[in-house]
């Protein structure tokens, strides 16, 4: 008796593994979505059943992932050209473009309907709008049309805490809007700092990045302008129901440091930056990550401290806006 052997001695067949489908959903972006949506959900007044909260976070993340798949489907031609993205599942030939599109559309509809059923219609509608905004407005339309693409794309990343908030409360309030603005205004300086020191090949893909279209000096000025514009939103959140003395103290320190970093980037010449290997730009980029994370952690901390009656009474005197 002999074994029947399937002989596949030819070249390796490009067929997607489970991990390729996960990669289509951009898991690293998803982790930021999960974190900010979770904070929005936890700091909102009222509460969800833990299972409802878990479902809400899963479906918000899935919606974000679905828009990532649609982004990869549409941008496969760009991804093929750029070194950083050439190994993504579609340009690498592991997933067919149509398959990625189908996955993106199906998961989008699924995530929106499930979020609606698990929480409320407004949360579902906001998730649908976020997917539409990222996949259509940003990816298909503005990304290749304007060097302000980062600014516009930032809006899609800014929606998750608002959706988390709406999942609990059923309505949008000033607190949700300020969490949105915090991420929205933070995104441009964060990415433009990266663009200054990362030699990317966006020009090869003909994507208009500010560093290429307007030059590095203009990018440095843009970083400063957006950082200055970001500060009021970060501080205003401190005088709403999600803020408080601890948040305010932290926000003042963080924003001062962030502003100082932006000013130092603005004042530097390209020659000086090249000389020290973009030290200030790299430091500013790393700090921008801490900046956003610390603000959202401070919201969480305020929500936890508010459970102590004595602190809640003290913190209420800081709450000048909203009061949801």
């Amino acid at each position: 008796m002999s074994d029947i052997r399937a002989d596949f001695s030819g070249p390796s067949v490009a067929e997607a593994g489970f991990g390729d489908y996960i990669a289509l959903l951009k898991p690293r972006v998803m982790s930021l979505v999960v974190f900010t949506a979770l904070v929005g959900l936890l700091v909102a007044p009222g509460s969800l059943h833990p299972i409802e909260a878990l479902a809400a976070i899963i479906f918000i993340a899935l919606g974000g992932g679905a828009s990532g798949a649609l982004n990869m489907w549409w941008d496969a031609d760009i991804d093929r050209v750029m070194k950083r993205t050439a190994n993504r599942p579609i340009p690498a030939g592991r997933v067919a473009p149509d398959e990625a599109m189908a996955l993106g559309v199906a998961l989008s509809g699924f995530a929106v309907i499930m979020l609606w059923l698990a929480t409320n219609a407004l949360a579902g509608a906001l998730l649908a709008f976020t997917i539409f905004f990222y996949a259509v407005i940003y990816t298909m339309w503005l990304k290749r049309a304007t060097p302000q693409n980062i600014v516009i794309g930032g809006a899609a990343g800014a929606f998750p805490p608002m959706i988390g908030w709406v999942a609990v409360t059923g309505s949008v309030s000033i607190e949700a809007a300020l969490m949105f603005m915090l991420i929205f205004m933070w995104t441009p300086p964060h990415f433009w700092a990266l663009a200054l020191f990362m030699k990317s090949d966006y020009h090869k893909a003909r994507v208009p990045m500010l560093t290429v279209t307007h030059g590095r000096k203009a990018t440095r000025a843009h970083i400063l302008v957006y950082t200055v514009a970001l500060v009021p939103f970060a501080l205003l959140a401190g005088v709403t129901s999600i803020g408080g003395p601890v948040y305010l103290a932290l926000a003042v320190g963080l924003n001062l440091l962030f502003l100082m970093g932006a000013v130092s980037i603005w004042r530097r010449s390209e020659a000086a930056a090249q000389e020290d290997g973009y030290r200030a730009e790299k430091r500013f980029f790393r700090f921008s990550l801490i900046y956003l994370f610390a603000h959202f952690m401070a919201f969480l901390l305020e929500a936890a401290l508010a459970r102590l009656p004595a602190y809640a009474e003290f913190a209420a005197s800081f709450s000048l806006l909203g009061g949801a």
Binding site: D3, I4, F8, S12, G17, F18
Partner: peptide, 19 residues
């Protein structure tokens, strides 16, 4: 008679199914 699974493609399919 046993069917021997030789190819890496089978592993991928099985991974996809389990996933």
């Amino acid at each position: 008679m046993a069917i021997a699974r030789e190819h890496e493609l089978h592993k991928r399919r099985s991974g996809r199914n389990i996933g």
